[in-house]
Design a protein around this nucleic acid. Sequence first.
DNA 1: TTTGGTGT
Length: 276
Amino acid sequence: MTLRRFLITLLFVTVGAGLWYAQEQEVRDRLSWMGVPTWERLTPLSFHRVLRNDGFLVGWSDVRVGPLWVSYALQVVDEPSIGPRPGFRGDWRTLWPVTADSYQSSGYDRGHLAPNYAIAAVHGREAQHDTFLMSNMLPQRPGLNRRLWQRLEEVVMDHFVPRFGMMQVITGPVFDARFTQGALNRVGLVEVPEAFYKILVVPGETPKALAFIMPQAVTGDEPLDRFLVSIDRVEALTGLDFFPRLSEPAAEALEARVEASGWGVEEVARRPGRFQ
DNA sequence: TTTGGTGT
């Protein structure tokens, strides 16, 4: 009798775990392309766990006390209706006490990784709410956050997405490898990145990709194409492996070089920002 | 405000 009860319990647990796993895979496939980023070599600095949000995924590091990447899809929206900006909020899933006032008087902005406007336009109000979780923030210098990065976000949604119809985006931090410049440089508990990357992919038979790395110290008026890099370069600086399900030849074709032809970058590289 | 913080 007890054995039978045990076997029935085991059956339920197995089926439940299987259903959870299948659903998790389905969500991850929908919010990423060719697999979520993973680590090239497993070290404490590259280890992360995946937080599921409405409209985007976050690769959360308990060592950096911040996200290592976010992944989301964008598509053309004819008449986006954007609700007002909700307030910043802590995320209990991170366990770390990072709250809305954690960056207070630090000189750093709470910089969105998954952006408010684009996520709200494409994925709706609940998703917009999730972009204001502190697990989606990193300390960003105002000149970068409000100016150069804002210009890049605007160009993605207003130029690249209409040009190609849809786009997969991965964005995140680059940390300084030097211990005192990196691991010890924190706002509260959160490690301050030295730069940020953004990878844009147009899926298809011959996928196209564009990658940028932008440092903290910018004026904000720089042309965007000054910051173009290869995906291999981003992988070397972050220790992450992007698009792990891509075959070796396809990865080589997509990641080894800067291939900006067809994107029309020069048309938008000097487009001015909205602020200041 | 398609980004934000500071000081009142």
